[in-house]
Amino acid sequence: MKILVTGAAGFIGFHLALRLSSRGDTVVGVDSINDYYDIQLKYDRLAELGFEKNSITANKLIQSSTIPTCSFIQIKLEDKVSLDKLFEQEKFDIVVNLAAQAGVRYSLTNAQAYIDSNIIGFTNILELSRFHKIKHLVYGSSSSVYGLNESIPFSTAHNVDHPISLYAASKKSNELMAHVYSHLFNVPTTGLRFFTVYGPWGRPDMAYYIFTKSILEGTPIKVFNNGNMARDFTYVDDIVEGVIRVIDNPPEGNVDWSGKTPEPSNSKAPYQIYNIGKNEPVKLLDFITAIEEELGIEAKKEFHPLQPGDVTMTFADVSDLVGKLGYKPKTAVKEGIKKFVTWYKDYYKA
């Protein structure tokens, strides 16, 4: 298949582009290469895909020097004209939209970035998927949509109408917008609620990355909610495998769906929502311990109250993923942390 991967210079998008290319798909990567975090890391990911920094120019499609079936173009999702030209030229079968303004805390002070990328940009993806007859649109959502929900584990059957950050609200909006296009225009869409993704080539603003950097530098780490938190940490390779399973299985619509007792995760339209998580929350202090043990250094800890926008626990119910696609993430935290630390030390020569 020919697959568009937006956010290809990002954490998950980079890993997905590698995996799709390795199995023989033709991949076109798109990314704006914004400066939300160190752009050198983004350029280094692209270099791993065969795109050197000096060859990347806005709105110019370039071919990978190492992967014959992979190409890349720097475009903002808000630039509908350039995106439309790309869709018209490349005739994609599948679109995987992983480009988004990420981060809960950043959304507290930089609201416009989320509107531009996650709302306007996603609208453009929906419109172009509609007009160019895309066979399946897969897009990244987030566990943060569960917001004030206290029913554990988080299920796609739960109500998610009470987000507590603009980031979460933008992801919930994406799910609603996708349903409209599935219902009105028969665009098959699948939204994936990712749960705390970690691993090599990750985002420097994520806790595990910050912890590792601080521990190696001997500086204190900030432990929020006094450590009384748990996350369903999910290794990036497990996330990518889940995305691929979804790509290969577009929704067809649930003929038994009823508006009298509406199931939130699917519809009569070709629309589906999945959780992708380890289904095994880990206490934050235990996660820190795993990093300490792998580094062989004890962290200096500063305990702080819960941050605005944060939730105390995430825990994915993945029964839909298992039942419909026969898949469940499996990488243990110690194994995943070992792989991350090995990469981190090599990348930063730590």
Rank of each mutant, 00 (worst) to 15 (best):
E298V: 13
F224Q: 07
P220Y: 13
Y327S: 04
V223M: 11
A332M: 14
Y235Q: 10
E280D: 14
S267T: 07
G242R: 04
D232N: 07
N254A: 08
E241T: 15
Y271T: 08
V240L: 06
K222M: 10
K283E: 12
V236G: 07
H304S: 12
I291Q: 01
T289Y: 08
Y271H: 10
K330H: 14
L321N: 03
L325R: 06
E280C: 13
V246N: 01
R245S: 08
L295G: 06
D320T: 12
N266Q: 13
E302M: 12
V318M: 08
E280F: 09
T314L: 03
G309T: 09
L321W: 06
A290L: 02
F315D: 12
K301V: 12
Q307L: 15
A230Q: 08
K334W: 03
P264D: 10
A230N: 01
V282N: 02
P262F: 13
N275V: 10
G323A: 15
N254R: 14
R245A: 06
T314V: 05
L306D: 02
N254H: 13
E335A: 15
I273C: 03
V223R: 04
V322P: 00
N228Q: 14
G253E: 07
D256Y: 13
D237Q: 14
P270D: 05
D310G: 01
V255S: 15
F224M: 11
Y327N: 06
S265D: 10
V311P: 00
D232C: 10
K330W: 06
G227C: 06
T314E: 08
V318D: 13
E263G: 00
V243K: 01
E293V: 04
A290S: 15
I291N: 01
I291P: 00
T314Q: 02
A269M: 04
P262I: 13
N228C: 04
V255Y: 06
P220G: 10
V243N: 01
D317P: 08
S258E: 11
S267Y: 08
G309H: 09
P251N: 10
E263F: 15
A230T: 04
Y274A: 02
P308K: 10
P270T: 04
H304D: 05
H304A: 14
P262S: 12
E280Y: 11
P250Q: 09
D238H: 12
F303G: 03
I221N: 08
D238Y: 11
D317Q: 05
S267I: 06
E292K: 05
I273V: 15
